Amino acid sequence: MFQDLDETLKAILDDASAPADLRAADVSFDTPDKNYKPAEATVNLFLHDVSENRSLRDEARVLTRTNDGYASRLPSLRVDCSYLATAWSAQAGGLKAAEEHRLLGLTLLWLSRFPVVDERFLRGTLATPPQAYPLPTMVAQVQENRSSGEFWTALGIAPRPAFPITVTITVEPYDEVEEFPPVQKIDLRSTSVEHPLFRGVVIDQSLVPVPAATVSVTETGAQATSGPDGEFAVPGLEFGAYTLKVRAAGRPDEQVAVTYAADHQTQTVVLSGP
């Protein structure tokens, strides 16, 4: 994953449209510590911080269409990968500083052209499968609560010109996928506040209507029989809490606790068993 991001950044710096001096320089991802002494002009991109981008976090599950219905999975993680860009020269004295400054400036100008990484630069797992979101970049943005002095001290070298680069990639850490069948139809049932009627539908576990089922209200003894579409209605029932007893041929009896109110006049009863 991170090595593929390294190769992606290298592809940007090696692009045929990049400045010639930048293309001629080596690109390194080694740690630029006190033992780091490249033998040629080098752009070093040191990956020093990886953290979740919480501002881009999405708590909602991702729903996608499949051939047989729908698939639901947990949302992707958006991860900020922060590099420190430095330039290195094998020359000495003033020539060394001049080459490093020129190379660092070219790197800054060129990378600033890509606020979003172009798909043609993506490598490895960043290209296949395709990223769920484009890869935004931030170049030379100051990061709060970061001390550059402590950073260079930790590397054991004197401070040198540098700028940060942050690329946000998408990570898929979850394998769990829930699959659902496609929606076959949508039934809309209207109700009336002025003339309420308790009614509902009896279906099996495959969502198929169950006709000729007897629906009894235990508390009042009122009964109704479901029609060909599984629907039933019990007139004259007062608002309140009730227990429905449902009998259907070839199935065990089912008891369902329901609440009948002006804003809850319909009930779906799902029968268990075959």
Rank of each mutant, 00 (worst) to 15 (best):
D118W: 07
Q3V: 05
Y260N: 04
T220P: 05
T31I: 12
R199F: 06
D4K: 00
A20L: 11
V202I: 10
D204Y: 14
D118G: 13
V217N: 14
I165N: 02
A213Q: 03
T125Q: 02
E219L: 09
L56G: 07
N53V: 01
A262W: 08
L188S: 11
F232Y: 09
P129S: 07
Q223Y: 05
H264V: 00
P228T: 09
R73L: 14
T125G: 04
F151L: 15
I157H: 05
L9G: 04
Y174T: 14
P136A: 06
W88L: 04
D80N: 13
K10C: 14
V43E: 10
P252M: 05
S148Y: 13
A257Q: 14
D68C: 04
N44K: 06
A39F: 02
P235A: 13
E254P: 02
E238Q: 12
P19I: 10
D68I: 10
P19F: 08
P129D: 06
R65C: 00
K10S: 15
T86K: 08
V246N: 07
A90R: 03
E254T: 10
V139G: 03
G124Q: 00
P173Y: 06
S28R: 08
V201T: 15
R251Q: 14
D6A: 02
R78G: 05
A213C: 03
R160H: 12
E119N: 07
P134S: 01
S82I: 01
Q91G: 05
A71T: 06
L74V: 07
A41F: 00
E254F: 07
D6N: 15
N145I: 06
A20R: 14
E176P: 04
L109C: 10
L135A: 01
A127G: 08
A158S: 15
E119W: 04
G149F: 08
A132N: 06
L22G: 12
G240N: 09
V167S: 00
L103F: 00
Q223D: 11
E100C: 01
A213M: 02
L77F: 11
V167L: 04
G200I: 05
V139H: 00
S76V: 11
A248P: 12
R57P: 03
G230Y: 03
K96F: 01
T243S: 13
L56P: 04
L108K: 15
R23I: 06
L122I: 03
L135G: 03
L103T: 05
A97R: 07
F114V: 03
V116E: 15
L155N: 11
A222F: 12
Y174G: 11
E100T: 08
D175A: 15
D263C: 03
